[in-house]
Design a protein around this nucleic acid. Structure first.
Lengths: 177, 177
DNA sequence: TGAAATATGTCAATATGGCTGACGTAAAAG
DNA sequence: CTTTTACGTCAGCCATATTGACATATTTCA
């Protein structure tokens, strides 16, 4: 019935002799894929109740994290175009999860803030995802959080690491606490 | 000029006193987001040269990993509908990266295999992503791979873990080697 | 002051990757 | 011989992203 489910053949390198290329790390590749999928799945389910998608989540999250964020900064963080952002942001503004206030020193800017409603949703989403991390870390030996942070940080493009670190901690990373 | 870039305010919990809810793990949440983005970015860039997207990548990857995979099994792994798969799979078949052979014992089945061209592309993609893992692990203390695997596995829904483990290792997980 | 750069908004067209529902067909299983 | 299974396909819809072009207000600078 399942001759289709054979033993995994990747232990044998197929094809002609290519010297000894390091074997691909299929385990990490696939685990990263599935772990991330479950990670975002938590939030996806909650967001559905509000008629929002992942795009809304990302906007809401970073606005909540950095109140007073400018449009241009948000675009830079998300790495999308303003046209893409606009539809999503508009919906968050229209439904009252995010509000925009003109900049004080520069009135061209629209500084973004979460409303109390938006803050609550953003927190609910973060709590959901934090609970997954808590569960996962709880299954691991004591002190697994530092190494996990180090691992994830090391996976990020070195060139982007400072930017990310200052976004995450408000300053360059100083090592596991 | 940048009163918009204030110190991060999340250290103070906003709103009324909600007792002491555990603080959200913003660091892990955001690092996971950025790490995954860079991780898939590597492959995305290579895939563009072939006119493929992430959907093609996933199909090619799992077919390469489990030669002789049935359509239904692939759908189960990817968690998408057959209609979604079909367009992508068709393109991989038409362009000769994947081939389908009727099942031997059950001729309704279409068993999927990568062609030599497909195997090469799949390996190139896996190598790219493996190189990122190698670089990352190289920046960490010796023996960081085991904990990384354990962390990612722990992040996966417990109910799905056996399925994932048997997909990744061909058997239930036995702990870091 | 007047021109240029900046921050943002908007219209239009397009691509990709998902979805649901309905229907068809060949082969296997009872 | 009927039902179930494995798969394909048509049609339409949605979400998220893209590029390009153009508009508008505001700030900056020569």
């Amino acid at each position: 019935m399942d001759q289709a489910l054979q033993a995994h053949p990747q232990s044998r390198m197929p094809g002609p002799p290519e010297a000894d290329a390091p074997a691909p790390m299929f385990d990490l590749i696939e685990l990263f894929f599935f772990a991330y999928r479950d990670f975002v799945g938590d939030a996806d389910r909650l967001l559905e109740d509000f008629g929002f998608g992942r795009a809304h989540h990302r906007v809401l999250h970073f606005v909540n994290r950095q109140p007073g964020l400018m449009i241009a900064e948000l675009l830079d963080i998300l790495g999308i175009t303003k046209q893409s952002l606009n539809r999503v942001l508009k919906e968050l503004l229209d439904t009252g999860y995010v509000e925009a206030r003109p900049g004080v020193t520069d009135r061209r800017q629209r500084l973004l803030f979460t409303t109390s409603k938006g803050r609550r949703l953003a927190m609910d989403l973060s709590d959901l995802q934090s609970r997954r991390f808590e569960r996962a870390l709880g299954e691991l030996p004591q002190g697994a959080k530092g190494p996990a942070i180090d691992f994830l940080l090391a996976m990020i493009d070195p060139a982007q690491r400072d930017k990310v670190a200052s976004l995450v901690w408000g300053q360059p990373y100083e090592g596991a606490k």
